[in-house]
Nucleic acid binder design. Structure first.
Lengths: 206, 206
DNA sequence: ACAAAGAATGAATAATGATTCACTACTTAT
DNA sequence: ATAAGTAGTGAATCATTATTCATTCTTTGT
């Protein structure tokens, strides 16, 4: 036996793999999954198209992995915001702000994760993604009901409404057509959304 | 001049055109625009694929027209509900119920109209569709503010949240995975959504 | 230096599906 | 009946891209 995979090679391969993932991420952030061509990704990563298939079973699989990666980042941020101190309402509000803020900073990625239909494998991941959000929100809503800061309600349904209201406001076609106002002050927009959401939960004007 | 289009022919053509539109509608209601193949549509309509191109410039154009048709139906229903008697809150609630009820009865079509990304021409139509809803809701919210049954708020933003909350709950990926409960009683679901939405608008528990 | 094994390459292939167009069939007016 | 014009046909074409695989290049152990 002349050649045996060595540590050095393992690392080099891992690096190439990572580079492909990063370049895919970049492509997706630019124009979504559907417009991310294998040739473009290969070009960015400075490898041949065939090489991508050495590291990933298929385009779908590559996308599913990139989706998971991107997703994890987002969900972690929201979970983090939910772990701050304060009552359930305050924590939820912080989380919604986190969600909205990140989506506004990367609208194409947000759209890809929330709404863009891609293929069954990615769709499966998206399901998990939405469920992760729903569960996080739902749990906090329940805590809020126990704490007494939210009235009794269908926590699961409410969390779905939350995600929907935010997603629609932030990545709906109306917001995407408007010129990409990079460093514009989006606080009033976020404030209006948050107000609607918190009122929807609490039934209390503030 | 030997042949000149006669009334009879005009009607026959119009009929064929209409049949194509109806069959396209059927395909879309089944699986959305993306999976509606020209061949399938032609098959259903009992014409050759080429015939479709005698009546429509392109697939995109055909879809845009079908979208418009479907859209008009939906918006009209909501507008109708908004024209009943009662205060703004009552009328809006009736409209939301109409919206939700129709979406539940035709979830794939609702998804196609609200969320499925297709192509630029259809996307343009969707924009008009969303604007139509937004304007209807927005107008009523404004009336409600004047009437005093809603507190002052960003009416446009609130209407977007309304659409989002409903869409997510009814046609979002989470709801689509659940078994298609044909004739199940969806009232509790709709009630929960409506409650969230009305609270979001009024900031009042009821 | 050599050979074995694996990795990378990218042109060729394959699959999908919209669209075209040369042709046939039908309608109409004379 | 005939000719001119229009509608309908559907197999062939074209366009787009993911994927393959025969070949070339690298790495490793002896």
């Amino acid at each position: 036996m002349a050649y045996r995979e060595t540590e050095k090679m393992r690392q080099r391969k891992a690096l190439a793999r990572e580079k492909i993932i990063n370049c895919t991420y970049e492509c997706v952030a630019e124009g979504g999954f559907r417009s991310a061509r294998i040739t473009r990704i290969a070009g960015l990563a400075e490898v041949a198209t065939g090489t991508i298939y050495r590291h990933f079973e298929s385009r779908e699989d590559l996308f599913a992995e990139v989706f998971q990666l991107a997703t994890q980042k987002e969900v972690d941020k929201v979970a983090e915001a939910l772990n701050t101190s304060g009552d359930a309402a305050a924590r939820l509000e912080a989380a919604l702000r986190q969600f909205a803020g990140r989506a506004l900073r990367g609208p194409v990625m947000a759209w890809s994760l929330l709404a863009e239909p891609v293929d069954p494998k990615v769709e499966e991941e998206r399901l998990a993604y939405r469920k992760a959000y729903a569960s996080l929100f739902e749990k906090t809503i329940r805590e809020g009901i126990t704490e007494g800061c939210f009235p009794d309600q269908n926590a699961q349904q409410s969390s779905t409404c939350l995600v929907g209201a935010i997603a629609e406001s932030l990545v709906g076609p109306l917001s995407l057509t408007q010129p990409n106002r990079e460093n514009e002050d989006n606080d009033p927009l976020v404030d209006a959304i948050i107000r609607f959401c918190m009122q929807g939960l609490t039934g209390t004007r503030r």
